[in-house]
């Protein structure tokens, strides 16, 4: 396989039958982290990756959307969390109070799969406002199901494009808690899930250091330099010993992804 990703993360990796975009690498890397079990799926990037996992190595993955659809098997990633196909293909459709109270809150769901507008070194997520709350520079959609997904799923995976705007020292607003301000905070707050396990970006993969809870770089995607990741990170990034390179997408993964998205990446 010949891969020579270009310098710009948004653009297409260059020539060759197996060329892929940085977004495709990110989605494939995220999908690989999902195994069998259940996954509470956010809309957008998480939904595409979760559906890719179900189409490739994890056919038994149970996709759960906050609209109350448990075990949805959509043919294409839905535009919203409540598209009709989710209900038509689900094992069960339950009310919104039930999905949050009976299924999410007691810790029945394995992986919470979230996006972010900002994420900080302790993997706290902001999807509420950029700038001050009372006079925001950008008013974002807000919390949705995310705070309780981040609290109660047994673990959390985050997928987010990496740039100095998204990877910040401190989020402007804590919508969903990762590790708060460091070790012990989740326990102190009574959050029963173990928190973020993996953050997958278009440049690489970050994981929390077990001792400090700080996100450290564990993988670089092919062709991405460490300098570039550092430049896209708003804090002094620690690199894990034994930094590895992500396996590039296989032809099968790319074909399945493009079949899902209609080639939109």
């Amino acid at each position: 396989m010949t891969v020579s990703p270009s310098a710009s993360s948004a653009s297409t990796a260059s020539s060759g039958a197996d060329a892929y975009t940085a977004d495709e690498m990110m989605t494939v890397a995220a999908a690989r982290r999902l195994r069998s079990g259940s996954c509470f799926v956010g809309i957008g990037l998480p939904s595409v990756a979760a559906n890719l996992a179900r189409r490739t190595h994890a056919p038994d993955l149970v996709l759960i959307y906050e609209s109350g659809t448990i075990g949805a098997k959509p043919g294409r990633p839905p535009l919203s969390i409540g598209d009709g196909e989710l209900a038509e293909t689900a094992d069960a459709v339950v009310s919104v109070p039930e999905i949050f109270n009976y299924w999410l809150q007691p810790g029945r769901i394995g992986v919470g799969f979230l996006g972010a507008a900002q994420i900080d070194r302790f993997a706290n997520i902001n999807t509420t406002v950029i700038g001050p709350y009372d006079d925001p520079k950008v008013r974002l959609p807000g919390a949705g199901g995310a705070p309780e997904i981040a609290a109660s799923c047994r673990e959390v995976t985050v997928i987010v494009r990496q740039s100095p705007r998204t990877f910040v020292e401190r989020v402007d607003f804590v919508t969903s808690v990762g590790f708060g301000s460091g070790p012990g905070d989740r326990e102190r707050l009574g959050l029963r899930g173990s928190g973020p396990r993996t953050v997958i970006t278009d440049l690489g993969v970050l994981e929390p250091d077990p001792a400090t809870c700080e996100l450290v770089l564990t993988h670089l995607h092919p062709g991405v330099t460490l300098d570039r990741v550092r430049a896209a990170t708003g804090w002094d990034l620690t690199v894990a010993p034994g930094l590895r390179e992500t396996e590039p997408p296989t032809a099968r993964e790319l074909a399945a992804l493009r079949a899902l998205t209609g080639g939109r990446g």
Binding site: V96, Q105, A143, G144, G145, P147, E148, A151, L191
Partner: peptide
């Protein structure tokens, strides 16, 4: 959050003054 509003409706439908949940912490 979604869980908060959903539970607030449940309390409203149930004739209770408030709902309790594991939510929002932190």
């Amino acid at each position: 959050s979604h869980a908060g509003i959903a539970n607030a409706y449940v309390a409203g439908a149930s004739g209770l003054p408030f709902a309790v949940l594991r939510g929002y912490r932190g």
